[in-house]
Design a protein around this nucleic acid. Structure first.
Lengths: 303, 303
DNA sequence: TAGCTGTATGAAATCGAATTCTTACGAATC
DNA sequence: GATTCGTAAGAATTCGATTTCATACAGCTA
C-alpha cells in the first residue's frame, strides 16, 4: 500500500490539509524594510531555520506604517500561520490582537510589544547610543549631535534617551534631529545641520540607512572624516569597514538575535516553553577610524 | 444582511476558500540570496506590488542550490500559488515543471529559463562585462582580470563571455577566476591573484558581493585604488558611491526589472497576455573614480 | 387561469485530508 | 462453544466557503 503510494508519487493536497487542521505550516516575518541590511540578514536567518523545520516564510514589509502592519497581521491570522516574528512599526503593536486571540505565538524582534503573551529579543538600545556618545566624549568631543530615528517607535526613543543621558552625564547639551530612520530624511537633516554656524564636531547616527544619508551629505559639504567631523554609526553593515575611513560603529548582534528569535518561536510552536521571555543581547563597540585620535588634552573631559 | 455581516465582523475562512478554489492568493518569489542588495531590492518591489494587488509573498531563498530550489518550487506548487518570480539557481531550472504542469505562470528574473512557457526579464549580461572591460581598455589597461561568478549559471557564463569577447577583440589575453558570486570566495581569489608576480592592473568584478570580497583583499595588500589597481564592479549597491574612491560600476536597472517582472506576472495571473515575452533592459555604465585617469598615451590601445 | 420567464431562496454537493465511528474478524479466556 | 478484548479495515463525518441544483414565488402574457 505505502509502496503504491510512493509509486504514483502521490502528493497530499496541502490546501485540504490546512483546512482540516485549521493551520498552515507557515511563519510570518514582519519587518519595516527588507532592503535594510539589518532586516534582510534577520529574514535570511529566519528563512533558513524555517526551511529546516519544514515551514515556509510569509514576508511582510510594513514600511513602518501601522496600517500596513495591521493589514499584514490580519492576513497572517487569516492564513492561520503557526507563529510570527515581528518588528512592530508602532509602539502599541496595532493588529497583534488578531494573532494573539487565535493563540498564535509572537516573538518581538528589535522592539518589544506591549503584551505579556509575546516573547521578545532585543538589544539594549539605550546603551547603544550611550556608548557611542561616551566614546566621542572620551575622544574629547563636546559638540556632538544625534541623527536619531523616529522618536515614536521604541528603538528611536531609546536611542535618543541613551544619547541624551550620556551628554547630560558630563554636562553637555544634547542636540538631536529626527532622521526618521530613513536615508533621504537623514541626508537633508545633516545638510542643514552642517550648514549651521556652529556645526557639530561629531555625529552619532542611529542606524545604517541614516548613515548612508549622513555620509552623502558630508561628502557634499567637502568635510573630511574624521578630521573635520567624527562619526559613529549604530549598525555594522558589510560596507562599514570598506569605506574610507572605516566606520567606528556600535554593532547589534543581528544574526544571534534572529537565531534566538526563530528558535524561541519554533519552541513555542511545539508547545515547549512556559512563561514568555525577554532576551536582551549585548552590543559591540567596534572602533575603527571614523572618529580619529583623541583630541588635545586641553579639550579632554575625562581620562 | 450585509449589514449584519459587517456587524459581527465575519471573516471568511481563507483556508476553506483556498481548498474550494484550489489556489491561494499568494505569489512565490524565489531568489538565491535575500541578503544580496540586488535581490532584496527586487523582493521589496515584488512585495509592494503584490500587497497592492491583495496578494501575499512567499519568500524562497535557494542559496544557489538546485536541491533547495526544487524543494521550494514543489512547495509553491503544493500551496497552489498564483504565480512565481524566480531567479533559477541552475541552468536547467530544476523543479520548474511542478509549477508549469499546474499551469502556474512563472516569470524568470535575471536568468532565463529553458522553457517556452515562462516569461523572462533580464538585462544583457554579456554586455555588462564587455562594457566594463572596454572601459578599462580605453583607459589603457592591458592586464585586466575578471573576478567571475559561477560559470555554470547563466549570469556567470555570460559575464565571462562578455569579458573574454572584449579582451579578444583587442588582442589581449583574458584571465579570469571563479569567485562563485560569493564574498568570501572572491576575497580568497583576489588575495592569490594580487600575490602573483605579474598582478593585474585592473579588475572587473562580476557582482556586488564579490566586490566586497575584492575590496577586502585589496585593503589587506595595501594597494591603492585606482593608483595601483583599477576596479569596475557589476551592480551598483547604495554604498558604491560612498566608499573611497567611489566605484565605477555597470548598474543593472534592478527596480525597473523587478517592476516589469511583477507586472508581467500579475497580467498573466489575470489571463491577459498571449505569447510569453522576454524583456531585456539596458545597462548603465556609471563612471566614478575607481578606475582613475587614462594612462599615458604610450600605453593606450585606442582612442 | 394556465403557462412561461426570471429571480430568489434554501438545500445539497464539492474540494481532499484528517479524524471519528462502525463493523468485522482473530485471538484469548472461561 | 460462547464471550470478550484488541486490532484492523472501511465507512462516514468534519473543516467552511463556493458552487450547483432544486424548488418557489412574483410578474407577465395569452
Amino acid at each position: 500500500m505505502l509502496a503504491a503510494v510512493a509509486q504514483i508519487d502521490y502528493r497530499p493536497n496541502r490546501l485540504a490539509r490546512n483546512l482540516r487542521l485549521q493551520k498552515s505550516e507557515t511563519i510570518g516575518v514582519v519587518v519595516p524594510d527588507i532592503e535594510n541590511p539589518h532586516f534582510s540578514e534577520m529574514v535570511r536567518v529566519c528563512e533558513d531555520s524555517a526551511f529546516s523545520a519544514g515551514y515556509r516564510v510569509l514576508l511582510c514589509n510594513t514600511d513602518e506604517t501601522p496600517e500596513k502592519q495591521r493589514a499584514y497581521l490580519e492576513t497572517l491570522a487569516d492564513e492561520r500561520v503557526l507563529g510570527a516574528i515581528v518588528t512592530p512599526a508602532d509602539s502599541r503593536g496595532v493588529g497583534l490582537e488578531s494573532l494573539l486571540e487565535l493563540g498564535i505565538p509572537i516573538v518581538a524582534f528589535d522592539r518589544v510589544i506591549d503584551d505579556p503573551r509575546a516573547d521578545a529579543v532585543i538589544c539594549d538600545n539605550v546603551d547603544s547610543t550611550r556608548r557611542a556618545t561616551e566614546h566621542l566624549i572620551w575622544l574629547g568631543h563636546e559638540r556632538i549631535a544625534l541623527i536619531g530615528g523616529r522618536p515614536d517607535v521604541e528603538t528611536g526613543a531609546e536611542r535618543l534617551e541613551g544619547y541624551v543621558a550620556a551628554m547630560r552625564a558630563v554636562g553637555l547639551t544634547p542636540f538631536s534631529v529626527n532622521g526618521g530612520f530613513r536615508t533621504d530624511v537623514a541626508e537633508r537633516e545633516v545638510q542643514t545641520l552642517l550648514a549651521m554656524p556652529t556645526r557639530p564636531s561629531a555625529l552619532v547616527v542611529a542606524n545604517n540607512l541614516m548613515t548612508i544619508g549622513a555620509l552623502r551629505a558630508i561628502k557634499q559639504t567637502g568635510l573630511r572624516i574624521p578630521l573635520d567631523l567624527a562619526l559613529v554609526s549604530i549598525d555594522d553593515p558589510p560596507w562599514a569597514e570598506l569605506i574610507d575611513p572605516p566606520l567606528t560603529v556600535v554593532a547589534q548582534p543581528v544574526r544571534r538575535m534572529a537565531e534566538t528569535a526563530i528558535q524561541l518561536l519554533l519552541q513555542r510552536i511545539h508547545g515547549r516553553l512556559g512563561e514568555p521571555v525577554r532576551v536582551v543581547l549585548p552590543l559591540d563597540l567596534r572602533v575603527r577610524s571614523s572618529c580619529g585620535m583623541r583630541l588635545s588634552t586641553a579639550n579632554q573631559r575625562r581620562g
